[in-house]
């Protein structure tokens, strides 16, 4: 039986982009803000185009923050862009806001007025033991953010460079993966990435 992917609709994000790409990859997926419906998913995806403050507020109001803080121990989660950043302990976009604290770290700005917008390559860390990520080394992915995730090196699996910065592009802790780029908008590389990582998270292969 094909697994079900639940896209967490917390009112921020290009939910439809993700849904259509996942469907084109032959995944069963649905979007919902209902905790009951999301509990039934085999994998949860946190999408994201928005600001940290707005997103955390929406999660809090909907009660999805409490649900995600509990469920991550049992269910794999893929966080994309802002969805990845929400996994952090705290974020500083438009004020100081508490995140989900699933992968310890903080979300800070690149530099006042600076953004990382466009196509960049991924670099493997030497200590990276996840072979699945290695095939994406030096491949281009689409980034669009002004804030980045500062976390412990042990959680960083791939990095990307933008100007003076080397930023975490893929972070991982147990069965939780966060990606700073938008695989759903990274053309063929993005599709391959989603297919590989989703299978990795669900089946461990």
């Amino acid at each position: 039986m094909k697994p079900y992917l639940g896209i967490v609709n917390y009112g921020c994000g290009n939910v439809n982009s993700l849904k259509s790409i996942l469907s084109s990859l032959n995944f069963n997926c649905y979007e919902s803000r209902s905790i009951k419906k999301l509990q039934a998913a085999d994998l949860l995806i946190l999408p994201g185009v928005g600001s940290y403050s707005h997103a955390t507020k929406n999660l809090r109001i909907s009660g999805l923050d409490k649900f995600l803080k509990k469920i991550y121990k049992k269910k794999p989660i893929l966080g994309i862009c802002l969805g990845m950043q929400l996994l952090a302990s705290i974020g500083y976009e438009k004020g100081k806001n508490k995140g989900l604290n699933i992968i310890p770290g903080k979300v800070i700005n690149l530099k006042r007025g600076k953004f990382n917008i466009g196509w960049n390559t991924l670099k493997c860390k030497k200590t990276n033991k996840v072979d699945k990520f290695k095939e994406f080394e030096n491949k281009f992915f689409y980034f669009n953010h002004g804030y980045y995730y500062l976390t412990l090196e042990k959680y960083v699996y791939m990095k990307s460079s933008t100007g003076d910065y080397s930023i975490p592009a893929i972070i991982k802790k147990n069965n939780i993966i966060g990606v700073q780029f938008h695989p759903e908008k990274s053309q063929l590389n993005g599709k391959k990435f989603l297919k590989t990582i989703i299978n990795e998270l669900i089946y461990g292969k």
Partner: peptide, 29 residues
């Protein structure tokens, strides 16, 4: 609906936050 895998930018007639959010939710980056 064309399952685009390229980032999309939309310009035209956006006057408020709700319209902007709706457009992003539809699949515009």
């Amino acid at each position: 609906s064309k399952n685009l895998s390229t980032p999309l930018i939309y310009s035209g007639g956006i006057h408020d936050k709700d319209q902007a959010k709706k457009i992003i939710g539809m699949g515009v980056e």
